[in-house]
Amino acid sequence: LVRYRTISKIPQITLNFVDLKGDPFLASPTSDREIIAPKIKERTHNVTEKVTQVLSLGADVLPEYKLQAPRIHRWTILHYSPFKAVWDWLILLLVIYTAVFTPYSAAFLLKETEEGPPATECGYACQPLAVVDLIVDIMFIVDILINFRTTYVNANEEVVSHPGRIAVHYFKGWFLIDMVAAIPFDLLIFGSGSEELIGLLKTARLLRLVRVARKLDRYSEYGAAVLFLLMCTFALIAHWLACIWYAIGNMEQPHMDSRIGWLHNLGDQIGKPYNSSGLGGPSIKDKYVTALYFTFSSLTSVGFGNVSPNTNSEKIFSICVMLIGSLMYASIFGNVSAIIQRLYSGTARYHTQMLRVREFIRFHQIPNPLRQRLEEYFQHAWSYTNGIDMNAVLKGFPECLQADICLHLNRSLLQHCKPFRGATKGCLRALAMKFKTTHAPPGDTLVHAGDLLTALYFISRGSIEILRGDVVVAILGKNDIFGEPLNLYARPGKSNGDVRALTYCDLHKIHR
């Protein structure tokens, strides 16, 4: 019993810090008490220290592992850092350059016999395009090294910054494609005289377009951006097909006994025919423009016929181009109408809503002055909100995010209106959640004399007048207030005048 009563005193000691020596009952000389009392004092002292730490809000209350900052290894790049964003855009520009100039170089340097010394005699450094290609190869190699040090988000939505895990993730992902696209074939085969082989191998750079397509997928929600990307894709495919079309004609031209190829026909049409040795002929500019003209006309199913396939190889390629053109029509131009419709969806919704308003007016036989006010209010409210119901949009977000959005939407009023000066951010967040926005066209009466005042109004834009009878008592403008002081009276009061809008007004109100 003594032991039980001794232990039962522990909660009292913990909360009230009572010393055991003052209790005459606990001072009985028993061996059990002498053993338990020192333990009680020690526990009391420890609990006292913990309570003191909690009340003082000291940093040592938290466990040590929670006080440590997340460790980022040296030379690790955050995937959302500004440097990584700028670097990704730079790589994107280099990939676009590669997609345009690599097929052009591979096709127009394929057994090209233009006048001038061969590239091997001039030297590697004197070729501007080769120098640019070398810079692109170096940048792609540097990009691989950067990807080995860039964080990523795993399946659990955690940012991984450990170098080993980053390397394994990159090896399992895009490393092989990036490595093949970054191989400097110019340096590996330079001086061997195989410019045709170098041009063909350099087309491996186009593998990076797969990554670019995935990154550009984030802009699919913007109709104008999608339309622009589709047109660029169409032009890029036409450019690639033009390079292939020229390569076919250029390879067949020296081996044909009869002059029936499209390059021969082009030379005869523009007065620059090929001679018996295969030299001469149109310039590279004429060849490229004509090839691009043929691919565009074939892809769009126009086909004027002034550039036509004559050999079997050219006919087979033309059939493939027609098939590609039909697929592009289905996948690209078939979506253009939907994209344009999405661009004008706001206008369509406006006309639909206006039609419903006019049908309501016609069905209920609203008189002319009231009908005009109804239409003007709808037009003004639509121009202010673009038909978007803010309350319906915010309803799907958590309250903390709703408060931040409301604070942002009402920031101008909260910053410049005098009653809100000096208020804490928590108070402003709470008030912003209570605001209701209303609009009024010129001549609209917001409050009639004798109406119950259940709200306090803040003028965000425009001006109003307060009338008693036919006498203008006051004219209020931006950041002015009218209405009933909230919670100042037990019952809502009545208006002693009319409140009429002089201009288009936007008002925020808080109800009782």
Rank of each mutant, 00 (worst) to 15 (best):
Y65R: 10
Y65K: 08
Q68D: 05
A69E: 12
H73M: 04
H73F: 07
R74N: 06
R74Y: 05
Y80F: 06
L93F: 09
L94W: 04
Y97L: 01
T98F: 01
V100Q: 01
P103F: 01
P103S: 01
E112S: 11
E114I: 09
P118Q: 15
A119C: 04
E121R: 14
Y124D: 01
Q127T: 03
Q127H: 06
M139R: 01
I141E: 03
D143C: 01
N154Q: 08
N156I: 05
V160Q: 06
H162P: 01
I166R: 01
F171G: 08
W174F: 10
L176T: 14
L176W: 11
D178F: 01
V180I: 11
A181D: 01
F185H: 04
D186H: 14
E195L: 13
E196A: 14
I198N: 09
L206A: 04
L209T: 11
V210D: 05
V212H: 07
R218M: 09
V226T: 13
L227E: 01
M231A: 01
C232I: 04
T233C: 15
L236W: 01
H239N: 01
L241Q: 01
C243E: 01
G249K: 01
M256A: 14
S258D: 06
H264G: 01
N265A: 14
L266R: 01
G267I: 01
D268L: 14
I270W: 03
G271W: 01
P273W: 01
N275R: 04
G280F: 01
G280M: 01
Y288P: 01
Y293I: 01
F294C: 01
L299Q: 01
T300L: 14
P309K: 01
N310D: 03
T311K: 01
T311P: 01
E314W: 01
I324S: 03
I324V: 08
M328N: 01
F333H: 06
G334T: 03
V336I: 06
A338I: 15
A338D: 01
R342Q: 14
Y344C: 10
T347G: 10
V357G: 01
V357K: 03
R362H: 13
R362F: 01
Q365M: 04
I366C: 01
P367M: 03
R371L: 02
A381E: 10
Y384C: 06
V393W: 08
G396P: 04
F397W: 08
S412L: 06
L414W: 09
Q415K: 11
H416T: 10
G422D: 15
G426F: 03
R429H: 01
L431D: 01
A432F: 05
K434G: 03
F435N: 03
P442T: 03
P442F: 01
G443A: 03
H448S: 07
